[in-house]
Amino acid sequence: ENVVSAPMPGKVLRVLVRVGDRVRVGQGLLVLEAMKMENEIPSPRDGVVKRILVKEGEIVDTGQPKIELG
């Protein structure tokens, strides 16, 4: 899985990584606000952040790609 998608609709509060960052499985990639709760979205695997496809403040839909890992 190279693309991390939104598990639920919500607002991107914070992006916790930058392009080029090495990430580990379970590491937080971003914080999504859904139903007035903050949810940290974890990396599904070890890898390197290739692209960030969302911006802080953006509203995302379920299944929308957010971060691409290499």
Rank of each mutant, 00 (worst) to 15 (best):
L16Y: 06
G20Q: 04
E1K: 13
A6N: 03
I52G: 02
K66P: 07
V49D: 02
K36I: 06
L13M: 08
P7K: 13
T62K: 14
L53D: 04
G57V: 03
V12I: 13
G28L: 14
I41Q: 00
V12F: 00
M35W: 11
V49C: 04
V19G: 02
E33K: 08
G70N: 11
P42M: 12
V17T: 03
L30S: 00
V48T: 10
D46C: 11
R24E: 09
V17H: 02
R51A: 12
G20K: 04
D61P: 06
V25C: 12
N2Y: 15
K11L: 10
M8E: 05
L16M: 09
T62E: 13
S43E: 02
S43V: 03
K50V: 14
E58V: 05
G26K: 04
V48W: 15
D21L: 07
R18Q: 12
G47S: 05
R14T: 06
P7V: 11
K66I: 15
G57D: 06
M35C: 13
R22T: 11
R22K: 12
P65F: 07
L32I: 14
G63L: 07
G70S: 13
M37V: 12
I67T: 02
P7D: 11
L16R: 03
S5N: 10
G47W: 04
G63N: 10
G47Q: 03
E58Y: 06
A34V: 14
V31F: 04
D21E: 12
P44T: 07
L13Q: 04
V17M: 00
M8S: 09
I52M: 02
E33G: 09
G10P: 03
S5H: 13
R51H: 09
A6M: 12
R18N: 11
E68F: 12
E40M: 14
I67A: 02
I67L: 09
I59Y: 14
P42D: 05
V60I: 08
M37F: 09
E40I: 15
P42W: 09
G26M: 05
G57H: 05
V19Q: 08
R22D: 09
S43T: 04
G28C: 15
G20H: 06
G26R: 05
N2S: 13
P7Q: 12
R18W: 05
L53V: 04
N2A: 11
L30E: 00
E38G: 05
R22I: 13
G47H: 02
L53A: 03
G20I: 03
V54I: 10
L29W: 01
R45F: 13
G20Y: 05
V23F: 02
V17F: 00
R24I: 11
V3R: 06
P42H: 11
K11A: 04
P42K: 14
A6G: 06
V25Q: 13
G47V: 02
N2I: 14
Q27N: 03
I67F: 07
A34C: 14
L53Y: 13
P44M: 06
P65K: 08
G57Y: 05
Q27I: 05
D21P: 00
E33C: 15
M37T: 12
R45C: 13
D61V: 15
M37Q: 13
E40W: 13
V3K: 06
L69T: 02
I59K: 09
P65L: 09
D61I: 14
V15E: 01
V12H: 00
A6P: 04
A34Y: 15
D21C: 09
Q64K: 06
V54C: 08
V23R: 00
P9T: 10
L13K: 10
L13H: 04
I41W: 05
D46A: 11
E1S: 14
K50Q: 10
E33Y: 15
V3H: 09
K66Y: 15
V31E: 01
L13S: 05
V54W: 03
V19C: 08
S43K: 00
V31D: 00
L29K: 00
L69C: 04
G10F: 06
E56T: 08
E68D: 05
L13I: 13
L32K: 00
N39D: 05
R14W: 06
Q64P: 03
L69E: 02
Q64V: 08
D46N: 11
V12D: 00
V3I: 14
V31N: 00
M37C: 11
Q64C: 08
V19E: 10
V48R: 07
I59D: 10
V23M: 00
I59F: 14
R24K: 13
E68I: 15
M8W: 15
P7N: 12
V48H: 08
E1H: 13
K50C: 14
M37L: 10
A34W: 15
K50E: 09
T62Y: 12
K55W: 09
M8Q: 08
R45S: 10
V15S: 00
G63R: 07
V4K: 04
V31M: 06
L13W: 02
P44N: 05
V31S: 03
I59L: 13
L13P: 00
R51Q: 10
R14F: 07
E56R: 08
E40A: 08
G63W: 09
V49Y: 00
L32F: 12
E58F: 05
I59P: 05
A34I: 14
G26S: 05
V23I: 08
R45L: 12
G70F: 15
M35I: 07
N39Q: 14
P7E: 10
P42Q: 13
E56L: 10
E68G: 04
P42L: 14
L30N: 00
R24F: 12
G63Q: 06
K36T: 11
M37I: 12
P44W: 07
G26A: 04
M37W: 08
E40C: 15
V17Q: 00
L53F: 14
R14G: 03
Q27G: 03
K66M: 15
V19D: 03
R22F: 14
L16K: 05
V3L: 12
V19N: 04
V60K: 01
V12N: 00
S5L: 14
G47T: 03
L13N: 04
K11R: 12
G10V: 07
E56K: 09
K50R: 12
G20M: 05
